[in-house]
Simulated scan of single mutants.
Amino acid sequence: MPDAIPLMRTGLMESIILEARDMGIFTPPYEKEAGLPPLPWGEQPPGIAMPLAMGMDFLEIVARKEGLPLFGYQVVNQNSLPLIRSFHLQCRACANVGELIRQFITQAQEQTSIADYRLIQTREAATLAHCGHSPRKHCLQTDLYTVAILIQLLQRVLGSQWMPGQIHLRSEKIKAIERASVFRGVDIRFNQPYRAIVFSRELLQAGIPSFQDHPAPGTDKRPELPREGISRQLEALLPAYLATGMLNSKMLEKISGMSFRTLQRRLQQEGHQYSEILLKVRLQQARELLHRTDHNLASIAGKLGYSNTPNFIRAFRHWTGISPGEYRRLYKAGTKASNTTTPLSS
């Protein structure tokens, strides 16, 4: 039984999908097969959460069906690291490669709930490794995606031709990877305990240029992805799936990676019920949409998974004591609408 639901930011998935489309790949069938949330990629906030396993499945599905054994590497290599929106590295204050890597490690923890990047040093070598638990075993494309991110991080400083001395992959030996021209001269090691790149320790002291395309420290902050607590993780996941209107037991099993009965039992152990969490998430999203958008009520009802507007209005009035229209008017008038409402019990 899983102890948690591994999460990832949709911003990471968005960068993969948009790059795949730039490569000429028609992604919607693969998105559906992997179970990705039906989000407007390129338009939605990058901080929403989704199941990490589905992102990993998408990489494997595209690679297999498009005949692209290096897809996980190519989908990163198509663009430079700064253009991956979810990896805004705050590196203006970094004096050398070692500091840049440590900043990367800090920032990367915000992108998935199982991120565990480590810089391991010996007398001569430095290893930048991802040691986190994976919800899937032997996922070659996730291996390639991870090492591509690490390689591009250092190529930003050391030049686009730089490559590590070694690449460690968790997957089994694949001849197509060994023979790939992009890895010529690199010692690739399969069946390793973690994904990693290995390079000379001396590089940690190499100076880095000033990056003007990164935001200043303190910007682009998002709530931390919950690493434990099924109820908290469901709260983070459900916003991406509300608009489907299909949050039934089958969908929840796919999202959570456990049977619906097990999910219910885990929630009960934490003192929660699924229906309560769904209502809470809907209220939070309704308030957010009423605050920051001018969408009409029919559009908001659809985004929350309601089949019709009257059902949404009745539910909102039940939650808050006022209609969504009144709530929006109070907010726009500068009144603290939350002070006039009845909070949803938790």
Score class of each variant (00 low, 15 high):
G185C: 08
Q152Y: 09
N296D: 15
S231D: 14
H214N: 11
P135I: 10
S346L: 13
G207T: 15
I313L: 06
Q233S: 06
S15Y: 04
V62Y: 02
P239F: 07
G132N: 07
G67A: 08
E14V: 00
H295P: 00
Q152N: 15
N308Q: 13
C94E: 13
I313M: 07
R201G: 10
L52Y: 03
L225W: 06
P46R: 04
F183L: 11
T127V: 15
T340R: 13
L169A: 08
A196D: 10
S346T: 12
Q161I: 02
S171A: 14
S256A: 15
Q212Y: 15
R265D: 08
A216H: 06
N96F: 04
G35Q: 06
R118G: 01
H88V: 09
A20R: 01
V281F: 01
D22F: 02
I177T: 03
Q285C: 14
L283N: 14
P45C: 05
L238F: 11
L203R: 13
P51V: 06
E326G: 00
I5F: 07
S259V: 04
M246W: 00
R261F: 10
V62E: 01
T127F: 01
N339C: 08
V76I: 15
G185A: 05
A129C: 10
A125H: 13
Q192V: 01
S338K: 10
L297Q: 14
I322F: 08
Q121S: 11
K254C: 06
G271V: 07
M258S: 04
M1T: 11
A63L: 09
L83G: 00
I208G: 06
R102P: 00
P40K: 11
T10G: 00
E124R: 15
R328Q: 14
A20V: 07
E60W: 02
L290I: 11
W319V: 02
A333V: 00
H130T: 00
D187G: 02
S275Y: 03
Q205G: 03
S181I: 01
R329A: 10
Y73I: 08
K250D: 12
R179Y: 04
Q161S: 14
E66A: 13
L267S: 04
S249G: 03
G67F: 03
R64G: 01
H295T: 02
F104P: 02
Q166F: 02
K336V: 08
N191K: 15
S346C: 04
Y241G: 07
E60R: 08
T122N: 12
F87C: 05
Q74S: 11
D294I: 09
Y274W: 15
H133F: 10
E270H: 05
A129R: 08
R136F: 00
R170C: 13
I277G: 06
A301R: 07
A315M: 07
D22E: 14
L225D: 09
R9L: 07
T244P: 05
L203Q: 10
G229N: 06
Q268R: 14
T122H: 06
P343R: 06
T340Q: 13
F190Q: 11
I167Y: 10
T262F: 02
T262V: 12
H214F: 13
G218H: 05
P226Y: 03
P51N: 05
L153C: 08
E43Q: 14
S134Y: 03
L237E: 00
A176G: 02
Y194W: 14
K280P: 00
L36S: 02
R292P: 00
R317T: 15
L267E: 05
A4M: 11
T320P: 04
E228L: 07
I84A: 07
F199Y: 13
G271R: 11
I322D: 03
G72Q: 02
